[in-house]
Structure formats: C-alpha cells, structure tokens
Design a protein around this nucleic acid. Structure first.
Length: 621
DNA sequence: CTAGGGTTAG
C-alpha cells in the first residue's frame, strides 16, 4: 500500500477530500497495520485545517488507534494533534475505548474530568462508556458513584451496572438494581440469568429464565452455557432440544456450549448429530467451533474424528491445538501428542500453560519420564511459563508412576506455591501403584482430606496389602467425621439418550436383565479361571458396598446395559466420574474379548480403550 | 460509536 505524503499547498479541495476518504477507509479497515497507522498519523500532522471533515478524520484516527494493539497511541495523537484543533464527544468516546482496552484508570479519569468540564455530562452514551471503563479497571465503587450522580440513566446504564455487579459476584446489588429498572428489556433479563448462573445459582438462573417475558438466542445461550459451566450437561442438552422445538435458531455460540455438554457426557451420537447440523447449516468452522468439536470427539474417545476436524478447520489457533494435544494425551496417544507439540513449536507458535498441561499429561500417560522432566524444568522456562498447580500435579504423577515416590514428594515440598489436594492426590496415586503404605499415610494426613476420595484410596491400599485392621480403622474415621464416599456414577448413551448408573442403584427399568447378563458373564469368566485376587480388591469399607461386590459397580452396570441394548459388535462408550476400579478393569478386558466388543471407558483422568482383552492404558493408570 | 451469550487443562 502506498501512502503519499500530502503537501497541503499543492492540493485542490477535491483531491483533499478524496484523500481524506481514502484515509478514512484505511483507518476503518481492520487489516490496516500499526505501521500504516503511523504513516497516516504523520500525514495528519502536516495538515492544519479546522474544517469538520478533518474532525471526522481525526476521530477515525483515534478509533483506529483504540482498536489497534497499541491503544495508548490514541492519547499521544490526541495530545499532540488535537489540543489546538476542534474535537467533540466522539473524540472522547474513542479515547474511552482506548482507556478500556489498555485498562487505564488514569486515562479514564482524565476523560471523565474533560467530559464534566466541557458540559458533556448530559451525553448519557459518553457517561455510560466512562462507567464501563471504571468497572473494567476494577473500580466498581467509582462506577456506582458515577451511576448515582449521572443526570440521566438509560437502560444501558442499568444493564452495564448490573452486569458488572454480577461479574464481581455481587448478586445482591445486581438484583436490587434490577428491581429498579423502569422497563427491563430482554438484555436486562439475560444479564440476570448470566449473573445467577455464573455465580453458581443455576436454579435461580433457571427461574429468571422461565420468568422473562421473551427470550432470544442470546438468552438461550446464557442459560445453556450456564448449565454446562455448572456441571449440568444433561439439562443443557434438554434445553437445547427445547430451543429447537420453539423454533429459535441456534448460532455457533449455542453449538459450542452444547458440544461441550456432549463432551462431558461422552454423548457421541448427539455430538455427531450436532456436527452434521453444523455442516448442513453451513456454519463456518471457526476456531471456537473447531475446538469444541475436537474436544467433543476427544472426550468421546474418537481421536480419528478429532484429527479429521482439526485438518478441516478454516484456521488454527492456540485453542484448537491445545484441544487436540490434550485429546491425544488423554486417549493415550502420547507420541502423537508430543509430535503435535513439537510441530507447533517448529512452526513458531507460542505454547501457553494449557499446552503444557497436555504435554505433561502425555508424558505421564506414556511414561516418558525424561521428556516430561525436560519440558517441566527447561522448555516451560524457555517460554516464560511459570508452572501452576496443574503442572505440578502432572509432574508428581509422572514421577510417582515411574516409581520415584521420594522425588515426587520432594517436588511437592519444594513447590513455591501451596500444593492443593489434587497435587497430593497425584502422589497418593503413585503410592497406590507401588503399594507404598507408609508414604500414603503421610500424604493423607497432609491433605486434611475434606473429600472422601483420599480415605477411600488409602483404605483400598490397606486392603490390597491385606491390612484389614487398618481398613477397619479408616472406615471408623470416615464414619466418625461423617465423610461419605462419593458414589461412583457411570453413563452410557444409547439411542441418543444418556443412561446414568450409580453404584448399587437398581432403579433402571432394565436392571434385572442387566444383572442376568452380568451373571452370565461372571460364570464364563470363572470358567476361564478369572477370579484372581478379586476378593481382596473388592473388600470395601461401607456395608452397602459389600453388596456391590457382587458385580454392581456403576461401570459394570453401564457395560451390562450396553451389551444388552446395542447391536452385537458395536463399540460401547462409557463415562465414569471416579477412577476405574481394578476389578472392573480386569473384567472389562475379559468382556471385550468374549463379547468381541470394543469398549471405551473414560474415567476421571484418562481413557481406557479395550479391545481383544487388552487395554490401551497397559494396566497402568 | 455505550448494554447480554462461546472453545482448550484440572
């Protein structure tokens, strides 16, 4: 692009105007580079017209800078060029946009003062922008003070204020203000839905959603994503179906949320249906939709389709790459995950902390001790990434499963940040794997466990080495402290419907048939000499769980149901909320062989792909 | 050109 410097003297009025339009086009085009902005800046310095068209040009310059990666340049331009030339409320508006982007409280305050001084306080639009800018700079009280003294408040003022309260977790003030809105519109109601759900009160959000006089696609999106973020994916899918029956057209944002729900449920059929919907309705495969699709396929254990989507995307960004790396790592394709990472770095893309969670996860699942250690101690540093809790958890897991329990403990003791229970539990996992009871006891004390998972793990560990008195002791502690074991829950999707099974629950309509099937399999298994040490492993701590020792862990129920309700030979996909139980893992290997089925189970941390009696985790999880 | 909804980890 050629930018000719204009010498004002030699230029006719017409060509000046044309030149102005060209510059405005450039200023308003998103593809104009910062360098070009600077060239235009220089050109404008050579002019000194006081006409209205130059004002428009100057304002365009401000806006272009505000939208650029260096928004503060807008202020430099304003100070040097516009001090002695006319400017108006739009100039201030764009300066505010620049303040917002750079989160500059000083600039916002400065514009606020100018606004008051010049008698622009009655321009509500401008005042609203100032209000938003204060809130963005975490000065919620300043925003509220401004709100209270504004000569006029319109619906935008109210909505902004309510939204900022909601965002900061202050639903009391948000709701109080909502009640004062003279005529709430759809946006106001939606803000309230968003507020309640993002503060964890899904039922309040749902109530508002039902109450609101009308709903548009954004309202539906707020409600659906609220369900997803509050771990209610089933409700999210139900709402999505309801939305379709009410003839509200979903957009790509809706689909992102719904795909995320499918992922957490392992609902492959529904996920595929949405993928078809995406194609049929010609949605662009942007990075958002792309990541959501990759994640959905990954979490359903279908990596070839995840890779296929990755290849078809219009554009890649950090998220799409991270989604694929993590998917590969979770599904046990450790080498491919690392290849992907290396390629990304070779191509000059900067990994972030999420990338390294995936990389370390891959090393952990692949048992790549050296590579993982190098990435943790060297590569991350090279990219200027400070390890966070998740990285430590991965690293402890990697050391632990490699049998380096002492090193793992040392890593935790030397952490510059306080280890959380996830980190400690990673070490506990290593203790379980290598049957190190002493360290496990120490770790459990460290955790000051609030959840019961740690005690259960410890108790299982005692059981696995035959220390029954200790098993009993832990049971008593749990009872004494009122700690409940989190029930195991597994789900399977059959004919687009999610069936949930809770450990020991017999409420499923086909419960009897499921038991019959499991019994039949149990017979075959014992004929083949499958009993091994199950009595040891199955000894559990709660009375009611002894009943489940008969083969009614949630994953077994789900597998039994899958076997009797799908066509022979088809793949079973199951999602479990806890760690895979050892006995069930053994049984599933066996079942995959005698029933000639591929069985994919996603547990709390990773995937198990069973085929012909073998599991992809190599019995190492 | 001021107000509402989105993807990736654990």
């Amino acid at each position: 692009m050629n930018l000719h410097l204009v010498r004002p003297k030699n230029i006719s009025p017409t060509s000046l105007r044309n030149q102005g339009y060209n510059l405005i086009n450039l200023l308003q085009s998103p593809s104009t580079t910062t360098k070009q902005l600077k060239q235009i800046h220089v050109q404008l310095l050579l002019r000194n017209s006081r006409s209205h068209s130059i004002l428009y040009l100057h304002n365009s310059m401000l806006l272009a800078y505000a939208n650029s990666p260096t928004p503060n340049d807008a202020f430099a331009f304003f100070a040097t060029q516009m001090g002695h030339l006319p400017w108006d409320k739009y100039s201030l508006q764009f300066l505010l946009k620049a303040s917002s982007k750079s989160k500059s409280l000083i600039h916002a305050t400065h514009v606020h003062l100018m606004t008051i001084k010049l008698g622009f306080a009655s321009y509500t639009t401008l005042m609203n922008a100032i209000l938003c800018c204060y809130a963005l700079c975490d000065q919620l009280q300043d925003a509220r003070n401004l709100f209270d003294v504004m000569p006029h408040r319109d619906i935008v003022s109210f909505n902004s204020m309510i939204h900022k309260y909601a965002e900061s977790g202050n639903m009391d003030d948000a709701f109080h203000l909502f009640q004062q809105v003279p005529a709430p519109n759809v946006i106001t109601w939606t803000t309230l839905v968003f507020g309640f759900s993002s503060n964890g009160d899904l039922s309040a959000a749902r109530e508002v959603f039902e109450w609101m006089p009308e709903r548009d696609v954004v309202s539906w999106n707020a409600m659906i994503s609220g369900c997803v973020q509050n771990q209610e994916p089933v409700e999210a899918l139900q709402l999505f179906r309801l939305m379709l029956t009410q003839n509200v057209n979903p957009n790509s944002i809706t689909l992102c949320s719904v795909l995320s729900a499918c992922g957490s449920l392992g609902a492959l059929e529904t996920g595929k249906w949405i993928h078809v919907f995406v194609n049929k309705n010609r949605f662009r495969l942007n990075p958002f939709l792309g990541s959501a699709l990759i994640d959905m396929y990954s979490k359903c254990g279908v990596m070839d389709l995840a890779v296929e989507v990755f290849r078809c995307l219009e554009g890649q960004n950090l998220c799409t790459r991270n989604a694929l790396i993590n998917g590969l790592a979770m599904n046990g394709h450790a080498e491919q995950a690392l290849d992907m990472f290396n390629k990304m770095v070779d191509d000059g893309f900067r990994p972030d902390e999420v990338t390294f969670v995936g990389v370390l996860l891959a090393c952990s699942h692949g048992g790549f001790l050296e590579i993982g250690t190098r990435h943790f101690y060297t590569t991350m540093k090279e990219f200027g990434i400070t390890p966070v809790l998740e990285h430590y958890a991965c690293m402890v897991d990697l050391l632990g499963r490699s049998g380096l329990l002492m090193e793992a403990e040392k890593v935790i003791r030397n952490m510059p940040i306080t280890p959380d229970e996830v980190v400690w539990r990673a070490l506990l996992g290593g203790c379980r794997l290598h049957k190190n009871v002493d360290l496990a006891e120490k770790v459990v004390i460290e955790i000051e466990a609030r959840g019961s998972g740690d005690y259960v793990l410890l108790s299982n560990l005692y059981a696995s080495v035959g220390r029954w008195e200790d098993v009993e002791k832990v049971r008593k502690i749990m009872k004494h402290r009122g700690i409940k074991k989190r029930p195991g829950c597994s789900s399977i999707e059959v004919d687009n419907k999610i069936h949930e099974f809770i450990s020991g629950d017999n409420s499923h309509p086909r419960y009897a048939a499921i038991c019959e099937k499991l019994e039949e399999l149990g017979m075959k298994m014992s004929e083949d000499g499958f009993s091994a040490e199950t009595s040891v492993v199955l000894y559990d701590i709660e009375e009611e769980e002894k009943e489940q020792a008969l083969g009614h862990h949630s994953e077994k129920l789900a597998i039994g149901f899958g076997l009797i309700s799908t066509v022979p030979g088809s793949t079973l996909r199951i999602v479990k909320n806890l760690r895979f139980c050892i006995d069930c893992h053994n049984a599933t290997k066996f079942i995959s062989n005698i029933c000639n089925r591929e069985i994919v189970v996603r547990d709390r941390t990773r995937f198990h792909h069973f085929k012909d009696g073998i599991c992809s985790c190599r019995d190492y999880w």
